[in-house]
Amino acid sequence: MQIRSIILYSKSGEKRVLDFRLGELNIVTGTSQTGKSALLDIVDFCLGRDEATLPISPIFNTVAWYAVILQLPDTRILAARPAPRPGAKSVTNAMLEVGNDLGIPELPDLRVNTDSTQLRQQLGRRIGIGDTRSEPAPGSLLSPLSANLGHAVLLCLQNQDEVASKRALFHRQNERGIPESLKATIPYFLGAVPEDQATLQQQLTQAKRALRRAENDLKAAQEANQGIEARLESLLSEARVHGLLPDNSVDTSDRAAVIEALQQAASFRPTPTTQTRNSGGRNSSSPNSHPLSDGSCAPSQKNANS
């Protein structure tokens, strides 16, 4: 992708066009304070940057739209942005148009038909930037990052002070968040990661989450199992104390045997009391009879002959 033209539209409808020769080195010269240093900011803005870094001067205060015409091997693309309103720090409105014989439109033909995010995504797809989602390191507070045209621009532009800088190599490298973005996306642009890196990373992340859930479920099941073992032993001891089970009759290491023994203990029913008449005319209970709930024996009844 090459820049074919940079166009500035004034509010009165006039336009200033700066054409470039494709496939050649272009050197822009001119007197001081004519806007040469702002060309990179204009290109960056037209390619989808939201932050308004354009100069504030009488020249740029008259601009209504900024536009660039990009040349691709098989087509041309017009990327245009309305000028930010006075005092605005950012703008997201944009215009994108594609055509093989696309020319320079007039001001009335410019209209907003997209936003800066979609503009970068569509331009990125046109030049072959795929879905390259980069996952941050575990424990990092950074959000997942997808390489786009904005990251590619960082590798293509350099301001005058950046060219002479001993501490920065890339465009806007000293700005907050830019070093992290460069670190995450340069491997993709160098071809060090495959096109399906985003899909593979997403699958890996999902697999790690599933593994953590399974490990947590296993831990919870093990803790619950320990609680069940303790409860079974407690019930078994209680059944032995009450004489429902003989001592040491069950192997406590065999859960199935313990459960079966407890089921038998739960189904235990005491032998019912049988009353008989003795020779003295009083009722007496059998040797296996049980006392009443208040602890007294059954009252005697008078003989029917008395």
Rank of each mutant, 00 (worst) to 15 (best):
A88G: 01
G150D: 15
S165V: 04
V63P: 01
S134P: 00
S12Y: 00
A304P: 02
I259N: 02
V28S: 08
I129F: 08
G48M: 11
L245D: 05
A79V: 05
L72G: 08
L182K: 08
A152I: 02
S32K: 13
T185Y: 10
L78M: 09
G281M: 08
S146L: 09
D19W: 09
V17N: 03
S289T: 11
K302M: 05
R76C: 07
T92K: 14
L142M: 02
D109W: 10
T276Y: 14
R81V: 14
P86G: 04
T271F: 08
P291R: 14
K183N: 06
N61D: 14
L102H: 09
E223L: 06
S249K: 00
G177S: 12
G87V: 00
R282E: 11
R240C: 00
Q160K: 07
H151I: 00
G87I: 01
I56M: 09
R81W: 10
V17G: 00
G227Y: 12
A192G: 03
R212E: 15
I6R: 05
R4Y: 10
K11Q: 01
Q160L: 06
H151W: 10
I104V: 14
N113F: 07
D50N: 06
L149K: 04
G150R: 15
P73S: 13
T205L: 09
D251E: 15
I27C: 10
S37M: 08
S234N: 09
T252P: 09
E14Q: 03
P105L: 04
Q226Y: 04
K208V: 01
T53R: 15
R21Y: 08
I59V: 04
L141V: 06
P73A: 02
